[in-house]
Each structure stands twice: as C-alpha cells, then as structure tokens.
C-alpha cells in the first residue's frame, strides 16, 4: 500500500482529535481526543518506519529500521501514565465541582 494512505488516515485522525478538543467541553471526551491525536502520531511513526525499512533492505544501515516502532512503544507507555494522571485529575475535578465540563474551570478569568 502506498504511504500516502497512511498519511491521510493519520491526518484525518489528528484532525478529528483537534476538532474534538476544540469543540467538546466534556473533559473525558477531550481526553479521548488527545489520545486520538497521539495515536495518529503513532500510526505515522509505524508507517514511516516500515517504509524506510523497505527502502533500506540490503544496506549496511539496516539496524536502524525499527527505531520508529520502538518510539511508538515509548509513546504508548507514556500515554498510559498520562491517562492515569489525567483521569485522576478528572475524578478529582468531578468530586469538587460535580461536573466534568472544562468551561466550568474558568476561574483564571478576572
């Protein structure tokens, strides 16, 4: 499959994530959209990694081909940690204000 389809998919996923973050007020959905963006990045990393690996077959530098895929694991681990923290914050927020609407937290204004 051509690389551009992956790019289109990733761009679509990323855009959905951005729009979701921008338009939704529910903290959990915003959170999901952020995950969506992260995963679109992951998708691109894997896709490019595969593409470069295909191009590098038969060359001396073949050892580097799996770098992108390793990054993805790192990202997933970090994302998992972030989810834990983020969800914890959301839970705390719900306990305090009985809502997960982020616009409720506009106390910085004024």
């Amino acid at each position: 499959m051509e690389i551009q389809w992956y790019i289109y998919l990733a761009a679509a996923l990323f855009s959905i994530g951005v729009i979701g973050v921008l338009t939704r007020r529910n903290a959990i959905i915003i959170f999901m959209c952020i995950e969506l963006m992260l995963n679109s990045a992951n998708l691109l990393l894997v896709a490019f990694s595969k593409m470069h690996a295909a191009a590098a077959i038969g060359k001396a530098t073949a050892t580097v081909v799996s770098d992108g895929q390793i990054f993805v694991f790192f990202i997933m681990v970090v994302a998992a940690a972030e989810v834990a923290v983020g969800l914890a914050i959301i839970v705390m927020m719900y306990r305090n204000v009985h809502s997960v609407d982020v616009n409720f937290l506009n106390r910085l204004k004024n």
Binding site: V21, I30, N103, L105, N106, K109
Partner: peptide
Amino acid sequence: QSGYVGNYV
C-alpha cells in the same frame, strides 16, 4: 485569558 480551555487550545 478567557479561562476557557477550548480558547487556549
């Protein structure tokens, strides 16, 4: 500085 997260994003 509206305080709305959405605006910042």
